[in-house]
Amino acid sequence: MLSLSLETHNVYDMLWLVFDVDRWTSQNLSSVCREAKQKNYYLAISNPCFEVWLCLHFSDLNPQDKSCQDFKTRLKVLLGSYNSSKLELSLYEPKIADAVARAKQLHPTATQNWPPTPGTHVYRLVEILLQSLNK
C-alpha cells in the first residue's frame, strides 16, 4: 500500500499522483486512487506505462501494442532509438498538443481514475502546467 501524506501547502498548489498501472493489482490501484482523492490529490495515471504518453506525441496508438515492451519498441521504431533514463525532451516538446489531443480522444470520460485500456491521463497534468505557463 502506498502511504500518502499531505503536507501544508499554499492554496495555489496542486498535488499530483503520477504513476503507471503495470505493476499494480486492480484492488491496490483502486485503494490508492481512493486514498489520493480523499486527500485531494489529482491523478495522472498511464496504462500500462508512461511510454504510452510518449508514443502519443507521434501517432495514434497501435491496437496491437499492449505491454510496456510494446510501447518501448514502438518508440524505438518512431525515434530510431529509445532510452527511458535519457529522454530527449526536444523531440517531444513541439508535439505536446498532439499528445494531449490523442490522449483525450482515447479516454474522454473525465471521471475515470485510470485508463481502462492502453492510454494515459498525463495530459491532465500537462494541461494544468501549460495553463500556468501561459498566465
Rank of each mutant, 00 (worst) to 15 (best):
S5I: 09
L6V: 15
E7R: 11
H9M: 12
N10F: 09
Y12H: 14
L15E: 11
L17D: 07
D20I: 08
T25R: 09
Q27N: 11
N28T: 09
S31K: 13
V32K: 01
V32Q: 01
E35F: 06
E35T: 12
A36V: 09
A36K: 10
K39Y: 07
K39I: 08
N40A: 14
Y41V: 08
Y41W: 14
Y42C: 15
Y42V: 04
L43P: 06
L43H: 12
A44D: 13
A44R: 13
I45D: 08
I45W: 07
N47W: 09
P48Y: 11
P48C: 12
C49G: 06
F50P: 07
W53A: 09
W53L: 12
L54P: 09
L54R: 08
C55H: 05
C55L: 02
L56R: 11
F58Y: 10
S59H: 07
S59Q: 10
L61A: 05
L61E: 06
L61I: 12
P63C: 00
Q64M: 03
D65V: 01
D65A: 05
K66W: 03
C68E: 04
C68I: 00
Q69P: 00
Q69W: 03
K72Y: 00
T73I: 03
T73Y: 03
T73F: 02
L75H: 03
K76F: 00
K76M: 00
K76V: 01
K76C: 02
V77T: 06
L79G: 01
S81C: 01
N83T: 08
E88K: 14
E88A: 12
E88V: 15
S90W: 05
L91F: 12
L91A: 10
Y92F: 15
E93K: 15
E93H: 13
E93I: 14
I96C: 11
A97M: 13
A99N: 06
A99E: 08
A103N: 08
A103V: 06
A103W: 07
